[in-house]
């Protein structure tokens, strides 16, 4: 990756949460363990991996929802922990938009869809009057929602998939440079999913918007991403070009993950469950200890070695 094009650079990012429950012992969860990865302008990095491995935490750290325990995140070379003035922060918030894993949480039930889209357009692009109306219609059309039907509805009057499209429309509306899309398409039916992925790809190619695309759907990651990172237990365990990582997986967790991608012609049966669960457990056991050493197995394809000490 050439240094000049790097839009976002994450260096040694570590985040621990301290849990002090009312009952039981206090414990610590290391959600991110020394993550180093970058995204170039106009490129998409897909992050896939174990549920609970820290993918959303990584996305939230980039949006400055909380400070890192250690490490840095630089956007266009500037450490985002050191943004101080209101103008700097606002500009960062405009440049980096988040589309959440869950379409329900991000919309205010008291406001219409029109209101949800008008606000960012007024705030960040200073649009008013006829230009505002036109822009709202344009972003709705971009995500294939009919403005006539959708504008005056409240979030609860839309289906799950329709709400997620409104969220994408909102990220589009402000003109972001980096969109952190956390499972943006998992609630969409496949035809809309395809059109949203096409849309994201178009945004990337024609408007040079970069994506941090967090997903459990490896086929869609392959469809949109320029680079892919596989996360397990707070670490990136394998990364590189999607065709290499998917075509020639090296890390045991990556192999397990790929073997579990649903195949409609293979029935799930209760009897077989033990075999797969045993295999998964065995892989978890060898991957549990964090690892320090990284091997470049082929040019641009990196794998964290299992069993070595962090």
């Amino acid at each position: 990756m050439t240094q000049s094009n790097v839009l976002l650079r994450i260096e040694g990012a570590t985040k621990s949460f301290h849990l002090k429950p009312m009952f039981g012992a206090a414990h610590e969860v290391v959600a991110l363990n020394n993550i180093t990865i970058g995204i170039e302008a106009g490129k998409a990095l897909a992050v896939v991996g174990e549920s609970g491995s820290g993918k959303s935490t990584l996305g939230r750290a980039v949006t400055r929802l909380f400070p890192l325990t250690s490490g840095t995140i630089r956007f266009k070379g500037k450490d985002i922990a050191e943004l101080t003035s209101r103008a700097e922060k606002l500009s960062y918030l405009r440049s980096v938009q988040m589309v959440f894993q869950d379409p329900f949480s991000a919309l205010n039930p008291a406001h219409t869809i029109q209101h949800h889209l008008e606000r960012p357009l007024m705030l960040h692009r200073s649009l008013h009057g006829a230009a505002l109306v036109a822009a709202v219609r344009e972003v709705l059309a971009d995500v294939e929602l009919d403005p006539e039907v959708t504008l005056h509805k409240y979030p609860h009057e839309l289906s799950g998939g329709q709400r997620q499209r409104v969220n994408l429309a909102r990220a589009l509306a402000v003109g972001a440079e980096l969109i952190i899309a956390d499972e943006p398409t998992s609630m969409l039916d496949v035809s809309i999913r395809r059109s949203v992925l096409d849309l994201m790809r178009r945004m990337k190619e024609t408007r040079s918007i970069a994506f941090l695309y967090i997903t459990h759907d490896i086929a869609t990651a392959q469809f949109i991403a320029d680079d892919i990172a596989i996360m397990y237990a707070g670490q990136v365990v394998e990364w590189g070009k999607p065709e290499r990582v998917i075509g020639n997986p090296q890390h045991p967790y990556t192999k397990l993950l790929l073997s579990a991608v649903p195949d409609p012609n293979v029935r799930l049966d209760g009897g077989g469950s033990k075999a797969f669960a045993r295999e998964a457990e065995a892989v978890r056991a060898i991957c549990r200890t964090a690892s320090g050493s990284v091997l470049e197995t082929e040019p641009g394809h990196f794998v964290r070695q299992v069993g070595s000490v962090a």
Partner: peptide
């Protein structure tokens, strides 16, 4: 929908 495919497979089985 919110699960990785490994856990999804384990849970469904």
């Amino acid at each position: 929908t919110a699960l990785d495919v490994v856990v999804q497979r384990e849970i469904l089985e």
